[in-house]
Amino acid sequence: MERDKICTSDAFCIILQSMYEIFQKYIEEKAEFTPAESERIQSFAIIKKLRKRQYLLQEGDVWKYDAFITQGCVRTYTVDDKGSEHVNSFSIENWWTGDRESLMMQAPSRFNIDAIEDTELVLFTHENFELLCREIPSFNHMVNTILQRSFIAAQNRIQASLTLTAEEKYLNFISKYPGFASRIPQTMIASYLGMTPETLSRIRKQTAKK
């Protein structure tokens, strides 16, 4: 993966700095860092841009990064033997993305991650990310808090998939993520909710009448 943070002009450097500032604002809202710590974090940052439909990760590759989205939207999904896509998650700005199983096990990923919109990210190689966690206690605490919340969110998603009706799943989805419906194709939302596009269309019409 190319190091997009290398500057070729002053104007390009300004654009990259602006992209990084979104990440910097995010971490400063969650923890306190000294100027030296902030500079240390930034020194490891890699700026990455994805065009719509461009892959961040493809099935079979080993995921090596901790990735934060500063703008845009990506989906994580698998493709079965029949060619059908199964969406595991969506991630938007101020969210993290990647395949943690592949990252921690250094095993080929079962997932694809691609951009639903033009997307910008801040990446850290996992080696550098762990180094920052060891060197900067407040950064480590922030990361642990994020991982705990991610685990809780995964538990809630599993519980919802097991207990809610199709209509309840949709209502729960738009309640938690009100902006997603206007940004993500309905076929992808249906796949995420575990229903056919036709079922989702019927539910949307029914709920619109209530």
Results as ranks from 00 to 15, higher is better:
residue 1 M to H: 03
residue 2 E to S: 12
residue 2 E to N: 12
residue 4 D to I: 11
residue 5 K to P: 00
residue 6 I to D: 06
residue 7 C to I: 09
residue 7 C to L: 01
residue 9 S to W: 03
residue 9 S to G: 08
residue 9 S to M: 04
residue 14 I to K: 14
residue 14 I to F: 13
residue 16 L to N: 13
residue 17 Q to L: 11
residue 19 M to Q: 14
residue 20 Y to V: 15
residue 21 E to M: 14
residue 21 E to Y: 10
residue 23 F to Q: 12
residue 23 F to G: 10
residue 26 Y to A: 11
residue 27 I to H: 08
residue 32 E to T: 05
residue 33 F to I: 09
residue 35 P to T: 04
residue 35 P to M: 06
residue 36 A to F: 11
residue 37 E to S: 09
residue 39 E to N: 15
residue 41 I to G: 08
residue 42 Q to C: 11
residue 42 Q to K: 14
residue 43 S to K: 08
residue 43 S to E: 11
residue 44 F to P: 00
residue 46 I to W: 02
residue 46 I to T: 11
residue 50 L to T: 08
residue 51 R to D: 14
residue 52 K to W: 05
residue 52 K to D: 05
residue 54 Q to M: 08
residue 58 Q to T: 03
residue 58 Q to W: 05
residue 60 G to F: 04
residue 63 W to L: 03
residue 64 K to S: 08
residue 66 D to N: 15
residue 69 I to L: 14
residue 70 T to V: 15
residue 70 T to A: 15
residue 75 R to W: 05
residue 75 R to S: 04
residue 75 R to H: 07
residue 76 T to V: 09
residue 81 D to W: 01
residue 81 D to K: 12
residue 81 D to Y: 06
residue 82 K to A: 14
residue 85 E to I: 08
residue 86 H to G: 01
residue 88 N to R: 09
residue 93 E to D: 11
residue 95 W to Q: 13
residue 95 W to G: 10
residue 96 W to V: 07
residue 96 W to N: 09
residue 98 G to K: 07
residue 100 R to W: 07
residue 100 R to T: 13
residue 100 R to G: 12
residue 102 S to C: 00
residue 103 L to H: 06
residue 104 M to S: 10
residue 105 M to G: 00
residue 106 Q to T: 12
residue 107 A to T: 01
residue 109 S to D: 04
residue 110 R to W: 02
residue 112 N to D: 07
residue 113 I to G: 07
residue 114 D to W: 04
residue 116 I to W: 08
residue 117 E to G: 11
residue 117 E to T: 14
residue 117 E to Q: 15
residue 118 D to C: 07
residue 120 E to F: 09
residue 123 L to D: 06
residue 123 L to M: 10
residue 124 F to P: 01
residue 124 F to C: 03
residue 124 F to E: 08
residue 127 E to T: 05
residue 127 E to C: 07
residue 128 N to G: 06
residue 128 N to K: 09
residue 131 L to I: 01
residue 135 E to F: 03
residue 137 P to S: 04
residue 139 F to L: 02
residue 142 M to W: 02
residue 143 V to A: 06
residue 145 T to D: 11
residue 146 I to A: 10
residue 148 Q to P: 03
residue 153 A to P: 01
residue 153 A to F: 02
residue 155 Q to S: 02
residue 158 I to A: 10
residue 158 I to S: 07
residue 159 Q to A: 08
residue 165 T to Y: 02
residue 166 A to I: 03
residue 167 E to A: 00
residue 170 Y to D: 05
residue 170 Y to W: 11
residue 170 Y to A: 03
residue 172 N to F: 00
residue 172 N to S: 09
residue 173 F to T: 08
residue 173 F to E: 10
residue 173 F to P: 10
residue 173 F to D: 10
residue 176 K to Q: 13
residue 177 Y to F: 15
residue 183 R to Q: 14
residue 184 I to L: 12
residue 186 Q to F: 06
residue 187 T to M: 05
residue 193 L to H: 00
residue 194 G to E: 02
residue 196 T to V: 09
residue 197 P to R: 02
residue 199 T to P: 03
residue 203 I to V: 12
residue 204 R to V: 09
residue 204 R to M: 08
residue 208 A to S: 05
residue 210 K to W: 01
